[in-house]
């Protein structure tokens, strides 16, 4: 990892448990600004848990506890001075299953800026977000139709647009393509390439090729433990850990 990269999130010795059962164990890693970081690992290894701790979505889960320190631009993400609503305003999220609101396409994208009173023209903001998520041409003539009429892939791009409309500093994506067909998946990967110019993205995926294609850094998690973290190329072509090698080459359980 070259030294000119800026650390935007610093996770230091994070342990996260559900009702006492540890799901993430002593994980320390750094997320770099304007880069795509992939988190890979077998199902149930704590990827979502770790990701959700980065914008305090675990706050809503009863019995979820966390220790260690996560700093966001040198501020304690879980400190008393940090307002969790503000955190989520600055760190957006795209979920595994597309979850558009049962409202029009326009209202979906405008929702966040609207409730948070973001400045600027709402129409412009909606158009910009939809263009960034490569959905504009498909929906520009039916902005006021229900978002639920869109296909799964379109709905997921709408959810990305919805997050982008907030112009967050970081976008967290939890297996955003797992519910999508290959064509939609390819479109979203193209999208990630374009977004990385301006956004910091952390993406959880269990699709190894996807991690290798889109990310600059890759973290491999197993049983809640961070087994390996480094440049994506290193992790995939020359892993230091034997478990990582077995996982990325598909010789896994």
């Amino acid at each position: 990892m070259s030294s000119e990269e800026n650390v935007i999130l610093n996770i230091d010795d994070a342990c996260i448990s559900y009702g006492g059962d540890l799901a993430v164990r002593n994980v320390s890693l750094q997320i770099f600004e304007k880069k795509i970081t992939a988190i890979i690992g077998p199902s149930g290894c704590g990827k979502s848990t770790l990701l959700r701790s980065l914008n305090r979505m675990n706050d809503f889960i009863h019995g979820c506890e966390q220790s260690g320190r996560i700093s966001f631009r040198d501020e304690d993400l879980y400190g008393d001075k940090m307002d969790p609503v503000e955190v989520r305003l600055r760190i957006g999220m795209v979920f595994q299953r597309p979850n558009p609101f049962p409202k029009s396409i326009y209202r979906n994208v405008a929702w966040g800026p609207d409730i948070n009173g973001l400045e600027g023209d709402l129409d412009d903001r909606v158009e910009k977000a939809l263009r960034q998520s490569a959905l504009w041409d498909e929906v520009k003539d039916r902005l006021h139709e229900s978002a639920l009429n869109l296909s799964g892939g379109q709905q997921q791009r709408l959810c990305i647009a919805r997050a982008l409309a907030m112009e967050p500093e970081i976008i967290l994506m939890d297996e955003p393509c797992s519910a999508l067909d290959p064509v939609s998946t390819a479109r979203i990967e193209d999208l990630l390439f374009e977004l990385k110019e301006n956004y910091t993205i952390v993406i959880v995926t269990h699709n190894m090729q996807q991690a290798a294609r889109v990310s600059q850094h890759t973290a491999f998690l197993e049983n809640g433990v961070l087994v390996e973290y480094g440049d994506t190329e290193e992790v995939f072509t020359n892993p230091k850990n034997k478990r990582t090698e077995e996982y990325v080459t598909g010789r896994f359980g």
Partner: peptide, 10 residues
């Protein structure tokens, strides 16, 4: 849907 809304700073 609730999670989606919270993730937008609601």
């Amino acid at each position: 849907l609730r999670e989606g809304a919270y993730s937008l700073g609601a």
